[in-house]
Amino acid sequence: MMKHKLKLGDYKFESRLIIGTGKFSDVNTMLKAIQSSGTQLVTVALRRFNRERKSDDLYGPLSKLKHVTLMPNTSGARNAKEAVRAALLGRELSGSPFIKLEIHPNPHHLMPDPIETFEAARILVKENFIVMPYMPADPVLAKRLEDIGCASVMPLGSAIGSGHGLRTHEMLTLIIRDSNIPVIVDAGLRSPSEAAAAMEMGCDAVLVNSAIATTNNPEDMAAAFAMAVRAGRSARMAGIMTESDAAVPTSPLTSFLTKE
């Protein structure tokens, strides 16, 4: 049913669900969620090593998962220079060419800085990263990021961790319409139905973290998101019916029950 794979740089993925590894209660819960989601791409963040909290280290557990590629993020970077540094560190550690570029200097709303993001993206493309920028849902910026060689654009549905869903619906539609690279909704999704809606709109993938990690049963929720993403994608590929203002009967209205 899923004829086309998700293509990012030279990589191809069956799964169109990307999972963030933040906020899970423990490593085991996270690993179960990753496995039940069938995801092939997961994000990780860089933090200072802490001898007392070695259990926080995800590299060991994640590197044991087959068919899962790591995508370090640049979280914590407040400008392009810091983001490039974080990206280089992430690549040294992971060996992965993927970088989730995120620069959000304001801790209150965590909105991405479009100017610093663009500047960092330009440098990282030259450094041969597969650049996946988290960005405001802005069709002009999306085109500019595509032009300089980003592998995808990742516009936000709503604020990170807010669970406000697809508030940027209209802008996302415009981005999808013009984009020649995968469009991945990153941030804001709360429920599987919203992930399905994003895919039905024509998004190529979704990135989900809080909506899986913070639930009572992340393993089951991850599976639910995976099904929703598949359903939404299949619906999109099948071609969703056109709307009509008036009712259109589905049964013949022959009046054999009444006398003529």
Binding site: A45, D56, S75
Partner: peptide, 28 residues
């Protein structure tokens, strides 16, 4: 300065160096 794995074995620390030791943790 990011120390590449290739360079790691040939670096000699100097007095006052500011070293960051970083690891992967959960993040979205």
């Amino acid at each position: 300065e990011v120390i590449s794995s290739i360079k790691r074995d040939v670096v000699i620390l100097s007095e006052g160096d500011n070293v960051e030791v970083l690891t992967f943790v959960g993040g979205g």
